[in-house]
Write a protein that binds this DNA or RNA. Structure first.
Lengths: 199, 199
DNA sequence: CTGGGCATACCGTCTAGTCGGTATGCAGCC
DNA sequence: GGCTGCATACCGACTAGACGGTATGCCCAG
């Protein structure tokens, strides 16, 4: 029960080209040629070039939100939940590396209403993550001497930065990397690290 | 006697507009109007729109490299040097927040040769930072159970992410924030944190 | 014969960059 | 001081091309 393949082909080509050359530097013509369809076909399924871009965001945001909800729903000790969420979001970000590239590079090219929707949904994710951290703090797992917003930014920074340095051809396996980054993050925010000695 | 204020005015306007609306969405006409000069004047000092963008990068890269060299030249225990470098790069990134926004968003809009120059200079910075970390590892300060490239990415991620969440109007003072982020990073890579819970 | 799926030619707009021209300043010469 | 010659700084109307989007119509399934 596939979507009309035109949609799929166009989306695939769009992500690839947008990631490689940027949204603004990619013409609709290039996209449809790479997808092997015509402009007419594309504009039959998409309202605008902007639509194409938003489609990419929509898929990613939905997927990550789904994962988050599933992990949270499964329950368990909050420390384990946080760890699982961290690993998951890093892994899926690696799976969707080109999407990530486009995401952070071209969000500002979306029309204003779309931009706010993306922002809203990201804030949603953020808030849920924040409440997990808050729980962890209440249980004495995580340090409280640094504003929670900073702890959280410190984590999402890693996720964000992936598309700027990680190469799937490199030596790092994605699962291992996810564990390593998560470990670095959790070690940094561990309660026992709180404001004592430097050096 | 300053550099012909045209250059300065144009650059200032360009950074502001590029940060607010993106490079591709900003026309040269808008830039020169905001700067209060004419197109003719601008094209007298800049070869192309691309030149404008590169100018922004050039200034930032030069400044940060200068700072890095100065700190390294000053010497001292490697742990202190690393800490000083971290704090400095975070602070200057906050001082140049709009430039940072443009930087990460629009690097791919530069012409290929310029892009490689930017990449080269960033790699330079990276390599020096990496050798500091390596020294620290040799002295037993930092953990060695995670690839050095990952440790370093973990830090630059924070720097990179600043322009996506930090607001100068927010509650965080820039010096305090720089210390907090540096602390989180250094705690994460501390040798004593190495591979305990494999869970 | 009807309508959704698609093809193609075309249009209006926008924009980076140009180019002929002007204004100003300065150096040397008489 | 006046004159010439030349360079630098700047002006702004104009162009050539690219690009997003559309109008129109064909084709085939039902």
């Amino acid at each position: 029960m596939k979507e009309t393949s035109v949609v799929d082909d166009v989306m695939r080509a769009a992500v690839e080209l947008f990631a490689a050359n940027g949204y603004a530097n990619t013409s609709v013509q290039q996209v449809v040629e790479a997808a092997g369809v015509t402009k007419g076909a594309m504009y039959h399924y998409f309202q605008s070039k902007d639509d194409l871009l938003f489609g990419i965001y929509d898929r990613m945001l939905s997927l990550q939100k789904e994962h988050l909800d599933a992990i949270v729903a499964q329950g368990g000790p909050v420390g384990d939940v946080v760890r699982a969420v961290c690993i998951d979001v890093i892994e899926t970000s690696i799976d969707f590396l080109p999407e990530g590239t486009v995401f952070f590079r071209s969000m500002h090219m979306l029309t204003a209403p779309r931009q706010s929707e993306v922002t809203r949904r990201r804030r949603d994710y953020n808030d849920i993550f924040a409440s997990l951290i808050e729980q962890g703090q209440a249980e004495g797992l995580y340090r409280t001497d640094i504003p929670r917003a900073v702890l959280i930014a410190n984590f999402f920074a890693d996720v964000h930065y992936l598309s700027h340095w990680y190469s799937p051809e490199g030596p790092e396996g994605k699962t291992l990397l996810a564990e390593q980054l998560t470990d670095l993050f959790l070690t940094g925010i561990d309660a026992s690290a709180a404001k004592g000695a430097a050096s």
